[in-house]
Design a protein around this nucleic acid. Structure first.
Lengths: 352, 352
DNA sequence: TTGTAAGCGTTATCAA
DNA sequence: TTGATAACGCTTACAA
């Protein structure tokens, strides 16, 4: 209301301005503002007052250049729409913030060249460290990660590479847990809807499915395997129709992730099939939507939040401590979470 | 395998190394690498070869300091777990990338002091521009935004502030659309589950509910209003019980967003109530899950993706063009999306 | 067409 | 306890 046409000042206020303002050198100002070195209380008072008064804010670019650190951590994930990555991001955020870093989230939209692009720009020093959960682990990934000066932590499936810190979870084993559970419930014809099979998680899960079959002396029927597309809700929904084309109809289906499982359940619901009575459904990831689905979805937790936390801690350790310790691989075990979408419904007659 | 203990080089390769390598000055290297100014083809060849050979990557901090631009845009959103913000982020990402900027996503976890923190650190020049969708618009927000040198675009409800570029949507009007629709379907006792009522969207939606009642000469019954907590799935689920405590039971419910509506539908489902037969449900936002819910959820789209795109374009315009043009406010109209969760089910007897 | 040199805003190493 | 001053790695006049 009162401010008439006052343009924002064109040059911004620097350390030199506050130095001049209170008649000390820029060195002193820097010392006071960073609480480094020695200075009198009186000087401190004056510098701080001056800084506040003229609205000084340290220039992050200059600081970074000089200190050779940006105080930023980059997190590269393939899809911010996927609750699993959201969970990871949140726990990572927590850890890095506690250590004084800002987390910057980079979404690659599942594009490999975007991932590589991020790796490349790490070389340009726009962050001090990187946590990446690559969909693919190509030779190019390896090459770039090796070349980087900053520490990198990979969140992935089983170890593709032992040269780099990583947090691993064997999602294939998760699929085996799911299969075991279904068999124990009496289901034996179990279909599998996979995500993109060329990706690391896609491949791991498919292999898990195969080895579960082998493990239990079940026949391998390629007709029971559906390539689901893209790990999304609508991906699951859209491929579900192919599930119903299989004949005889499978008794249960394992989906490569919860989002797809949810999509499948919805399709089944629309077609009038009841879960688990007409078909049992198991997912993977244990996202929030899973527990609130109707019926609540049985799933295999891959402990996303915990993996995130661990990855962040690994990174902080590198950043703050022994940067030349040998690479660490920390493993996490998938955990079966049984809910109603996969348990045989007995006639409820009150249990004793 | 072959690489024995070769430590990553401690100093990284600079423009000076390239210059030395091919016997030209650093100025020439800079010119070639930035394709600026004049140089012979021969020089270009040599510089480029040398750069590639010794693995030169421009130092982003130095470049930023000199050029006074980071080539980064910050996007501050309150919850990366909310699909609405994801949709926004994706379309913003698209636009800024096309203009050569990197988008960095900052999640405030709905904490106001985090929002302010981001505003403050903008003053430190860690990004060239900011898009923010504040939950609250306090005096402190205003103060900081005004002080910033970088352009800021606010994505919000109805204009709180005309001093800054903004993309607005009147979500209160959206609630009115929902109400109108429900009334047209014959529902008249309509409850309202709100998100946090101290937030901008919370307040706007509540006001929308009131004015819809007034508009249609309906009695205002505070008993029909539930403060839902936090705009999340489980928030909706958990408050749904209070919905059923209202007596007589409302015929329909409008939820302040889809996530909460989905939570409500699940609760109702568990309690054996059928939607819309026993209670109609309408949400807001039109997230992907809404169309795939059972039954598909009627909702009011607030055009998140489009608002994101517009905000980004506004920002790019500021950055590339007339930075002293008067602030722009662009408005977007909420749109009703009718699905099955709110339409009275006639006995289906085949249409003409 | 190329090179020299002056910054960008800091931090940090010296002396004073 | 303070102040000059030299970097940090780059861009960009200005000269040559």
């Amino acid at each position: 209301m009162t401010d008439n046409k006052m343009r924002k000042p064109v040059r911004d206020v620097t350390i030199a301005d506050v130095a001049e303002k209170c008649g000390v050198s820029i060195a002193t100002v820097s010392r006071v503002l960073n609480r480094k070195g020695r200075y009198s209380v009186e000087t401190q008072r004056r510098v701080e007052a001056a800084a506040r008064e003229i609205g000084y804010a340290p220039n992050h670019m200059a600081k970074s250049l000089k200190r050779k650190r940006t105080e930023q951590i980059a997190l590269a994930i393939s899809d911010i729409g996927n609750p699993v990555y959201v969970a990871m991001a949140k726990s990572i955020q927590q850890v890095v913030k506690d250590h004084g870093y800002r987390l910057i989230l980079l979404s690659t939209e599942a594009l490999v060249h975007e991932e590589i692009g991020i790796l490349k720009s790490m070389a340009k020093h726009f962050a001090d460290g990187l946590i990446i959960s690559p969909l693919l682990y190509s030779e190019e990934h390896r090459k770039w990660i090796k070349r980087l000066k900053q520490p990198v932590v990979v969140i992935s499936g089983i170890a593709e590479e032992t040269d780099v810190d990583s947090v691993l979870v064997d999602s294939g084993h998760g699929i085996r847990l799911a299969m075991e559970h279904l068999l124990s419930q009496g289901y034996s014809r179990v279909a599998f809807i996979n995500g993109p099979s060329q990706t690391v998680p896609g491949r791991a899960r498919l292999n898990g499915y195969y080895s579960a079959l082998v493990e239990h002396n079940l026949p391998i029927d390629e007709g029971l395997i559906i390539d689901g597309g893209d790990f999304t809700l609508s991906g699951g929904y859209m491929t579900a129709s192919r599930l119903l084309e299989i004949s005889p109809r499978p008794e249960a289906v394992i989906c490569a992730n919860d989002l797809m499982a949810l999509g499948v359940m919805r399709y089944l619901g629309e077609k009038g099939l009841r879960v688990p009575r007409d078909m049992a459904v198991v997912g993977m990831d244990d996202i929030e939507h899973a527990s609130l689905a109707v019926p609540p979805l049985t799933t295999v937790s891959l402990l996303a939040a915990e993996r995130g936390r661990m990855a962040a801690e690994l990174l902080m350790e590198r950043l703050e401590g022994s940067s030349d310790a040998p690479p660490k691989q920390v493993k996490v075990l998938p955990k079966l979470v049984v809910r109603e979408s996969s348990v045989v419904v007995e006639t409820v007659t009150g249990g004793a």
